[in-house]
């Protein structure tokens, strides 16, 4: 479904160049739940943003359903984000002075969907996240966990094929984090492909596949210890074991 070939991304300022992605090769199949892990600054969020077309890439190719999106116009990329991709952000990114209904409806409006269909989808999404009774509330009237559930409802209301979640539980306590993870698993079980950036090894283990990124490179075999914020490759581990 998703196919990245030798993707590179360089951030440039006047003084320095930062190679955030150094040649990522990754394939994600339909219905997978992939956890992207790695130390801070390793490039996992950049990779997620490239996958979500929030960032452009400098080299390589990105194919979605076998079609390269390289060179697509702003309109094509907007349509892609609107119709096929759902986003869940660490900071929820809800518009504070919009009601829950208006927040969730937002991406559907840009699709030009009829009002009745938008209402049906929003109600359905709110039902799924357990907030149907609060659709006229504003985000400030909800807890952090509830806000993230609204963000999830917004992401799934458009029935996307891919859900990209950037540390979706990063701002939540453990109870709320567990509820959000259960919700994501439920959505994945319905056939939606999920890629999730996380620092939490417990959450990463709940995914169907873990992908680790180190210094802008994929390291499927790396062993990442989030407590030590360090990486040892298999080779290093073996050498250590021999020693």
């Amino acid at each position: 479904m998703l196919e990245l070939s030798n993707i590179t991304k360089i951030f440039r300022t006047e003084l320095i160049e930062t190679h955030a992605l150094r040649g990522i090769n990754l394939t994600v199949n339909e219905g997978e739940f992939v956890a992207l892990t790695g130390p801070s600054g390793s490039g996992k969020s950049t990779l997620l943003n490239v996958l979500g077309t929030l960032e452009s890439f400098d080299g390589g190719d990105y194919k979605l359903d076998g079609t390269s999106i390289k060179g697509w116009s702003d309109r094509q990329l907007s349509n892609l984000r609107n119709e096929k991709i759902g986003f869940i952000f660490q900071g929820f990114n809800l518009i504070k002075d919009y009601s829950l209904f208006d927040n969730i409806e937002l991406p559907l409006r840009y699709r030009g969907m009829a009002a009745s269909e938008r209402k049906r989808r929003v109600d359905q999404a709110l039902e799924l996240v357990g907030l149907a009774a609060r659709k006229d509330y504003h985000p400030s009237q909800l807890s952090g966990g509830q806000q993230q559930r609204v963000a999830i409802a917004r992401a799934i209301a458009g029935q996307p094929r891919i859900l990209l979640a950037d540390e979706p539980t990063g701002n939540l306590d453990s109870l709320m984090a567990r509820q959000v993870m259960e919700l994501l698993e439920q959505i994945n079980a319905q056939g939606c492909t999920i890629l999730m950036v996380t620092h939490d090894p417990d959450q990463a283990r709940r995914a169907s596949r873990q992908v680790q990124i180190v210094d802008g490179l994929l390291n499927d075999a790396a062993l990442y210890d989030p407590l030590q914020q360090s990486v040892r490759t298999n080779t290093q581990s073996q050498q250590a074991d021999v020693a």
Binding site: D74, N93, I95
Partner: peptide, 15 residues
Amino acid sequence: YEFSLRRALGASRWQ
């Protein structure tokens, strides 16, 4: 921030 959010959620520059 709101412009960026709208774009992330699928609004084109034209919209």
